[in-house]
């Protein structure tokens, strides 16, 4: 159906390591925290783009982030029970710990959902997520959202089916040694980035 060259969401394992039913999340960070060679700030970069459709939002109040992660939820899809929810990302550090129950590793499917808002129009929002085990990349997950409406609030829920039990990485090996690095970009401009160290308890 789709030409192989078309831009589309894709997932590619960084190695042959088995997939883990990991739970990942991200947070909005203020542009100033992120070091970029260009020194440009996200809001300026995005607002300077020509919007294909009308509508610009009201000016952003001082101190407000143009791109914000509002909510992140990790759930067992069978029971719908949330394992982990984070609603206030404004004050947490760039690298944080995520403590998850061991029973998550027994779930047949795990859903991770995040809600984010963008003050500005974005032409090519994409997410890049890399899972590291002992600093080695074991899984990479890219998703291309593309266009984001100015002043919009959006959600993305990704359902991941667990690998077969014999292919699972034991909790003892993962806990404290697995880092999920999630970054949002508009084109090549970094909007938000978060590193989470996963602990199973």
């Amino acid at each position: 159906m789709r030409s192989p060259t078309s831009p589309s969401p894709k997932s590619s394992p960084a190695s042959s390591a088995p997939a883990s039913p990991f739970a990942s999340c991200i947070a909005g960070v203020r542009p100033g925290i992120i070091s970029r060679p260009s020194g440009s700030v996200t809001s300026a970069a995005a607002s300077s783009r020509a919007a294909p459709a009308p509508a610009t939002s009201a000016p952003l109040p001082p101190g407000e982030d143009a791109f914000k992660i509002i909510n992140i939820r990790i759930r067992d899809l069978e029971t719908k029970a949330p394992f982990w929810t984070c609603r206030d990302w404004s004050n947490i550090k760039r690298t944080t710990e995520m403590h998850l129950p061991r029973k998550l590793l027994q779930c047949s499917s795990v859903a991770r959902e995040f809600t984010f808002s963008s003050h500005n129009v974005l032409e090519n929002l994409r997410l890049q997520q890399t899972v590291y085990l002992h600093d080695q990349p074991i899984e990479e997950w890219n998703f291309e959202f593309g266009f984001v409406i100015p002043g919009s609030t959006n959600t993305w829920e990704s359902v991941v089916l667990a690998a077969a039990p014999e292919e699972m990485i034991p909790a003892e090996i993962i806990s404290g040694n697995m880092v999920i690095d999630t970054a949002f970009y508009d084109g090549s401009a970094l909007l938000a980035r978060k590193r989470l160290t996963v602990f199973y308890e």
């Binding site: 409406i149 919009s152 959006n154 991941v160």
Partner: peptide, 12 residues
């Protein structure tokens, strides 16, 4: 809905 909702399901 004030934007979009995307649901992604992946298996293998």
């Amino acid at each position: 809905t004030q934007g979009f909702n995307v649901k992604t399901v992946r298996h293998a």
